[in-house]
Design a protein around this nucleic acid. Structure first.
Lengths: 206, 206
DNA sequence: CAACTTATGCCACCGAGTGGCACTGTCGCC
DNA sequence: GGCGACAGTGCCACTCGGTGGCATAAGTTG
């Protein structure tokens, strides 16, 4: 995923540099000064870019804050599309997630943690982030249903994917709660733990 | 839930009437002309109310479109708070949901269906609707964790609640896909079916 | 009827997001 | 090396969702 590659056309390099500067500065300003307190004009001034240019790089103010989420899901979907899933679906989904996590950029941890913490503090970001999950869910269901058609099968696929996302969200919430300590390895461990808890959770009493 | 009650102070009655007129007209305009194409000014003109008044009744444009969702979750949380949950947690949550569904207003079906269809067409509404689920999740976890403390228990509770919401979303999606045919009874039946599918989904293969 | 409360209307304002157009740096081609 | 083509950018004006403030009208209470 690390396409730092300097063998891109000059134009692309410039564009990529402003894209990253925007995401980086946005994350800093949002956490330092607050999400609502930071206007897009502030951000654009800081990066020395026009507001118009911002919107050519990101679809919305929420989008730039949650760039790390977006990268994860995009990488995940690529991976799912590239390989064939075998065995129990939820296991396959979990395994692929763990692999994808391992392959993210080196500083992805930090950016993702910042995004999660913002997302918990700002309702608008939380909603937007859930939207990403939902889009990913849709795409996953489509990808999985293509391979094994059927009507009952589709309901099961959707349900499985929803549960998968639910477990991921629980795991990342736990990781965020301890402020990301242990880094990516800890996150992966929490994913494994949380998925293993699913049967117990279904059986647990009030 | 049917507090049509005319034994309220006159002022309350008026307020309630504009509240309902706003929700009703909003749903109509949004479905007829499109969500984005309908401005709040359009809505306020149609109801003959100032924009300021709109925002004293609803927090946002999304809010008024998803009033039916909001009512459901609010009624559900009331019910959960009022009774004690016994036996397997997910069963208790499901049963309470079915009861709550049975007790909604008579025209709730129609409004909920309209809200769901809008929500599937408009990303902003989808995100907002997921936000409601998330808030409900939080509240449920808090309510359940109060009763049975513990650290591992809290993770299980959260996971259970997340799975509960996942199943509900799958069920209501199925209902919406068939355009709400069969009304509320069909929705309840789908809820039962979908929850029953959970074990099979977890075991299902790709 | 008078005094108080509360919802409402009106107006000015902020910030997110879009469309249009002119400009400039980059790239391909001769 | 010069010369168009064109993507990316800046600037400007605009729409629309959402908020604050204040005067006013409507409902409530004595």
């Amino acid at each position: 995923m690390s396409d730092d590659l300097r063998d891109l056309p000059l134009r692309e390099r410039k564009k990529l540099r402003t894209r990253r500067a925007l995401a980086e500065t946005a994350l800093r300003l949002f956490t330092e000064d607050g999400y609502d307190a930071t206007t897009l004009d502030d951000l654009c001034d800081a990066v020395e870019v026009s507001k118009r240019t911002f919107f050519r790089n990101y679809r919305s103010k929420e989008d730039v804050a949650l760039a790390a989420d977006s990268e994860l899901w995009s990488a995940y979907l690529d991976r799912v599309a590239a390989q064939e899933l075998t065995g129990p679906l939820i296991e396959a989904l979990r395994t692929t997630l763990v692999t994808t996590l391992g392959d993210m950029d080196l500083d992805w941890d930090r950016r993702f943690l910042a995004a999660r913490e913002l997302s918990e503090a700002v309702p608008a970001l939380q909603a937007h982030s859930l939207g990403y999950c939902q889009d990913t869910t849709r795409a996953l269901v489509a990808a999985v249903s293509d391979r094994s058609g059927g009507d009952v099968a589709e309901v099961r696929a959707r349900l499985t994917v929803e549960i998968f996302v639910a477990a991921w969200r629980t795991a990342s919430l736990r990781w965020t709660a301890r402020r990301g300590s242990g880094g990516r390895d800890a996150l992966v461990a929490l994913v494994q733990e949380t998925f293993a808890e699913i049967p117990a959770a279904l059986a647990s009493c009030a």
